[in-house]
Design a protein around this nucleic acid. Structure first.
Lengths: 205, 205
DNA sequence: ACCTGAACACCGTTCAAGT
DNA sequence: ACCTGAACACCGTTCAAGT
C-alpha cells in the first residue's frame, strides 16, 4: 500500500523523531515495514522524497496575509513564518535552491498567494518574482543562521586581531541574536522595498 | 609532509577539477598520494577540512571597501563579492551556518574589516553584528539561489492554479534573473539600513 | 504492478601494525 | 610522530527473482 502520500507521511514522522540524519532510505523502509528497494517503485531517488517533504513543509508556511492586509504587512508575516519553519528544516534549504517547483502544488500555491498580494499592492508584473526571490533568499539564509550554535562568533585566540568585531559580539543583547538580526534585516528590506515602490509606482496595474 | 596547508591546497584543487562531489577523503588522499587514514593524523574529521577550505575561500571575499568608502558603498561591494564567490561554493553555505569561526583567521579578519567600517560609519556597537548577520544571510541565500536551474519557477501542469505567478515569471527580463533579484534586494536592504541609521544616529561613537 | 533479497560501488572513520 | 593496510558500519541504488 505504498504511495507518495504514505512515504511522505513516514518521512515527516522520521524527521520528527530522528531528525534529518535519520532520514535514510533504509530507515524510511523500516518505518514502513518494507524492503528499501520497494521505495524505488514510487520514488526515482531520495531527491524525490525530499521534494515531497519540502512541499509538505511549505503547506505550513503562512501566506494568508495576502491579499487582505497591505502587501508590506503580509510580506513580513510570510517571511517570519517561512523563517521559523525552515529553521526546523535547515537541511531542506539546500534542496529548495536546486529543485524546480513543478509538481509541488502547495509550493506553487504559496507563490501564487504572494504574487497576487504584490500585484494588488501595486508592484509591476516584471518585478514580482525578483521581490519574492530577494525576500526568500533573506529568509532562507536567516533560517540557516538560526541553526548556528550560540558561540558561532566566538573568535577565541584570534581576539587580538579582531578587537572591534569581538567587542561588537559582546555588546549584543543576548536573548536571541539570530532573531534580532532577522528582524533588523527584515525591517530594513521591507522599508527599502516600500521606498522603491513609492519612487516608481504601478506602471501596468 | 602532510599539513593543514597542503591538505587545504589539495582540497581546493580537487574542488576546482571535480567539484564538491569529488571532495571525498579518499579522493583527497589519492591527490596527495597517501592512504586515506593518513589524513586523520591532521584533521579530526572531514568537517575540519571543510573549515579550512571555507577560510581559504573567505580570503578572496572583498571587504577592502572598508573603511575608506562610505559604509553603505563598501557594504554593497562586500556583499556582491561575497555572493559571487559563494555561488561557486554553494555546498559551503550549509557549513558556514554551523561552524564557529574560531581558528579561521581570514574569516575573522573579514568580519573585523566590516565591523570597523560600520562603526566608523556611525553604527552603534550593539547593532553591528546584527547588521553583518542580516546582510550575510541575504548574501548566502542569494548565493544558493544563484545555483538554481533556470527552470526553477516553471510551474508546468500546475499553471492553471497559479496564473498570476506564472505570468510574473514570464514577464521577467531573461538575462540573469537571479542577479536581478540579488541587486534589487541588496539595494532595498541597504536603503532600509541607511534609513534606520539616519533615524537613530550614533549613540556611542 | 509491486515486492523481496542479494549485491554493488561507494562513503567517513578506526585501529593494529609498522617505521 | 606519522604512515599503511585492513576492516567496519553505513550510504543510495540496481536488478533478478518471485507473486
Amino acid at each position: 500500500m505504498l504511495s507518495p502520500a504514505t512515504i511522505t507521511r513516514a518521512a515527516m514522522a522520521l524527521i520528527e523523531s530522528r531528525g534529518y540524519p535519520g532520514l535514510t532510505m533504509a530507515g524510511l523502509a523500516r518505518q514502513l515495514r518494507v524492503a528499501p528497494s520497494a521505495l524505488y517503485n514510487h520514488a526515482a531517488s531520495k531527491r524525490d522524497v525530499l521534494r515531497w517533504v519540502q512541499d509538505r513543509v511549505n503547506q505550513d508556511v503562512d501566506a494568508g496575509g495576502f491579499p487582505a492586509l497591505p502587501w508590506d504587512e503580509a510580506l513580513v508575516r510570510w517571511a517570519r513564518s517561512y523563517r521559523d519553519i525552515y529553521a526546523l528544516h535547515a537541511p531542506l534549504v539546500a534542496v529548495i535552491a536546486v529543485t524546480p517547483i513543478t509538481g509541488a502544488p502547495h509550493t506553487v500555491a504559496m507563490y501564487e498567494q504572494v504574487a497576487r498580494g504584490l500585484r494588488t499592492g501595486g508592484w509591476p508584473e516584471d518585478e514580482v518574482v525578483a521581490v519574492i526571490t530577494a525576500v526568500e533568499s533573506f529568509v532562507l539564509g536567516s533560517a540557516l543562521d538560526a541553526t548556528a550554535p550560540p558561540d558561532i562568533f566566538e573568535v577565541g585566540e584570534l581576539a587580538p586581531q579582531a578587537p572591534v568585531f569581538d567587542a561588537a559580539t559582546r555588546a549584543r543583547s543576548t536573548a536571541d541574536p539570530a532573531r534580532d538580526a532577522f528582524e533588523l534585516g527584515l525591517a530594513a528590506l521591507v522599508e527599502g522595498l516600500r521606498a522603491r515602490l513609492a519612487a516608481a509606482p504601478a506602471r501596468d496595474a
